[in-house]
């Protein structure tokens, strides 16, 4: 079997008395879409935050392409090619769409203005941002320089997804990327996910939307009480099997 591109072993994360991750294992294989499902509070967001450097696990190891990594900040994970859309989106409301898309990887002007005066190249950034948002069918946004806080919830989610899809090179993590989206916009995001997959980049998709999960996922990681309960194949399991497993109505078959 191929080696996982991203692998976590025995992750533990405690918040005071709450154990959000309880000796959790995780594997993501090259080129796949892995869905992560589980009840509210099961620890899904904590798991992906540990993978993306946003929280430091108390115990356990993480390996990227077989090499042990420990990301102290999201920036380190991002530099390693892991791009994440957090459930909270992590956008700066008062900044413009362009500023948000390029935060931490701004494009500078060429020549003296850029190298000595560090001037940003807004025309270049705007063009790129416009292109990425159009791909998502999100050009319902009139002005690429408008503040993110003047966008609707769905439009904001679109900006966050476009940012991750545009820059992710090894792994893209999406924590409930369609939660606030309309039918049409959700469809665009799902198409984008498949598009990213066809570029060979594996995706971790957290979602409560079973039809979406079953439509896209190659494998489904069922998360329960802070750990991986089992991994199921959407081709051999039904949605009701998945729901029964994640809610504890059914135990996984002994493998």
């Amino acid at each position: 079997m191929t080696q996982p591109i991203l692998k976590a072993t025995n992750l533990v994360k405690r918040y005071g008395r709450v154990t959000a991750l309880d000796h959790c294992d995780f594997e993501l294989y090259p080129g796949e879409i892995l869905a992560v499902i589980g009840d509210n509070g099961a620890g899904k967001s904590t798991l992906i935050k540990a993978l993306s450097g946003a929280v430091t696990p108390d115990e356990g190891t993480i390996e990227l392409e077989g090499k042990k990594v420990s990301f102290g900040t999201p920036l380190e994970a991002r530099d390693a090619g892991i791009e994440t859309v957090y459930q909270t989106l992590a956008l700066s409301p008062a900044l413009s769409i362009v500023d948000n898309m390029f935060v931490g990887r701004e494009i500078r002007k060429k020549g003296f203005m850029g190298s000595a005066l560090k001037m940003l190249d807004y025309p270049a950034m705007e063009e790129f941002a416009r292109e990425k948002l159009s791909e998502l069918g999100l050009m319902t946004i009139q002005n690429i320089n408008q503040a993110v806080e003047t966008l609707s919830g769905g439009q904001r989610q679109g900006v966050a997804v476009a940012r991750a899809a545009a820059f992710g090179s090894k792994v893209i993590i999406l924590d409930e990327p369609t939660a606030a989206l309309g039918v049409k916009e959700s469809r665009k995001v799902l198409e984008l996910i498949q598009d990213v997959k066809s570029r060979g980049i594996p995706i971790i998709l957290i979602s409560h939307n079973m039809p979406h999960v079953f439509e896209l996922a190659d494998r489904i990681h069922v998360h329960r009480l802070g750990k991986r309960l089992c991994v199921i194949d959407p081709k051999t399991h039904s949605m009701s099997d998945a729901v029964a497993l994640m809610t504890g109505a059914k135990e996984p078959e002994a493998a």
Binding site: A54, T73, P74, L75, R78, T84, Y86, T88, L89, A90, L91, S92, P93, A94, L95, D99, N100, V103, G104, R105, E106, L120
Partner: peptide, 18 residues
């Protein structure tokens, strides 16, 4: 831009890689 982002929402700025 990072100064503004940090002032706006520090947690979001951290997650966004600042």
């Amino acid at each position: 831009r990072h100064v503004y982002a940090v002032g706006d929402d520090k947690e979001a700025a951290d997650l966004a890689g600042i």
